[in-house]
Design a protein around this nucleic acid. Structure first.
Lengths: 104, 104
DNA sequence: TTGCTATATAGCTTATCAACTATATGTTGG
DNA sequence: CCAACATATAGTTGATAAGCTATATAGCAA
């Protein structure tokens, strides 16, 4: 995904917060009965509840984050799990630095 | 300015391009009769013309960039000059890295 | 089966953004 | 002084975004 698309993805308070939470799921979410926070990821409902937004809105935010490549999605029966994509974030930060601070 | 405000500022193709150009004004703008590109900055009209947008639209983009602290503004008679604020950009990049890639 | 939970999809509303035109103000040069 | 230029401001429009409700689908559990 292009630099500008990733910037648009992050230029939203809720999405930025979600990404921050997903960096360290155990620090921000209660244990899940149906899937390990680290191994499988954080499920959609937990994110929606913690943010205090409706489930469809959360679905949409996660779609944007996945599209930008910042988060990966795993399905297991009727659950959807999300994990941060650290490599993509690292690439993005490098790109951004090259673009807006090339002297470094 | 807050991290999220800066992200919103950069999440626009034209503004991102302007910031890139202002990193190295001599590489992107012709010499100015009325003010040195490096010493004083790039004047508004030059930015509007190069982007192919109207002057009021350029004024608005520059206002956003200045508000975010990424660019500084200097007035001289009827000209307005803009220069990149490298320190602010550097701080922003650090902030962002801390937020979305804290393990580094 | 029935009901509960998890997620997806559709459709709507409101807010924000990026662009424009028109116009005003102020500066400079002839 | 007047014309040309630089920028600012006001107001409008069209597109996109973020939220919601209502509803559909699918899995699980009693």
């Amino acid at each position: 995904m292009s630099l500008i698309e990733i910037l648009k993805t992050l230029a939203n308070e809720n999405r930025l917060t979600i990404l921050e939470w997903l960096q360290d799921p155990e620090a921000h979410f209660p244990p899940q009965k149906h899937g390990d926070l680290i191994e499988h990821g954080v499920c959609l409902g937990a994110i929606a509840r913690k943010l205090g937004i409706s489930q469809p809105t959360a679905t949409n935010h996660m779609k944007v984050l996945v599209n930008a490549g910042l988060v990966t999605l795993t399905r297991n029966s009727n659950w959807v799990y999300f994990r941060v994509n650290k490599e993509a974030i690292s690439l993005f930060l490098d790109d951004l630095q090259t673009k807006v601070a090339p002297q470094k």
